[in-house]
Computed example of a mutant assay.
Amino acid sequence: MRDETEVREQYEFLADQLDSEEMRHEGVRELFTHYKRALGWVLEEEHM
Rank of each mutant, 00 (worst) to 15 (best):
L31P: 00
W41E: 15
T33P: 06
A38W: 12
R37T: 04
S20P: 00
K36T: 08
E21W: 10
A38M: 11
K36N: 09
R8N: 03
E30T: 08
G40I: 00
D19G: 13
M48R: 09
D16T: 06
H47M: 10
R37A: 03
R2S: 12
D16I: 06
M48Q: 10
Y11F: 12
F13I: 12
Y11V: 00
H34E: 14
R8V: 01
Q17P: 03
E44Y: 05
L18W: 04
E4P: 07
Q17W: 04
E44M: 08
E44Q: 11
M48E: 10
V42T: 13
E22H: 08
D3M: 05
Q17V: 14
E22I: 07
V28P: 00
R2Y: 11
M1R: 15
V42E: 13
W41Q: 15
G40P: 05
L14C: 06
V42P: 04
H25I: 12
Q10L: 14
R2F: 10
D3E: 07
E26H: 08
R37V: 00
V7M: 03
Y35A: 06
D3N: 10
T33Y: 02
D16V: 07
W41A: 14
D3T: 06
R29C: 07
H47K: 15
F13S: 11
E4C: 10
D3S: 06
L18D: 08
L39K: 02
L18Q: 13
E30P: 01
E6H: 00
L43P: 03
Q17Y: 04
M1H: 12
T33R: 12
R24P: 02
R2M: 12
A15G: 04
L39H: 05
H34S: 09
D19R: 15
M48F: 09
G40N: 06
R24V: 03
D16P: 00
E26I: 14
A15Q: 06
E9D: 11
V7A: 03
K36Y: 13
T33S: 15
W41N: 13
V28N: 05
E6V: 11
E9W: 06
E6L: 13
A38H: 14
A38R: 12
E12G: 00
T5M: 15
A15H: 04
K36D: 03
R37F: 01
V42R: 11
T33W: 01
H25Y: 14
G40S: 06
M23C: 07
A15S: 07
G27Q: 00
R8S: 00
Y11T: 03
W41Y: 14
E46Q: 11
D16L: 11
H34D: 15
D3F: 07
A38F: 14
D19P: 05
D19C: 10
L18I: 10
E30I: 04
E45M: 08
M48L: 07
V7L: 07
E30M: 04
R2C: 08
H25K: 15
D19E: 13
L31R: 13
D19Q: 12
Q10G: 03
T5C: 14
R29W: 13
V7D: 00
L18H: 05
A15M: 08
M23Q: 02
W41S: 14
S20H: 04
F32I: 05
L18V: 08
L18R: 13
E45P: 01
A15T: 04
K36V: 10
T5Y: 10
D19H: 09
L31H: 13
M48N: 07
M23P: 01
E30H: 03
V42Q: 09
A38D: 12
Q10P: 01
V28E: 08
R37S: 06
R2L: 12
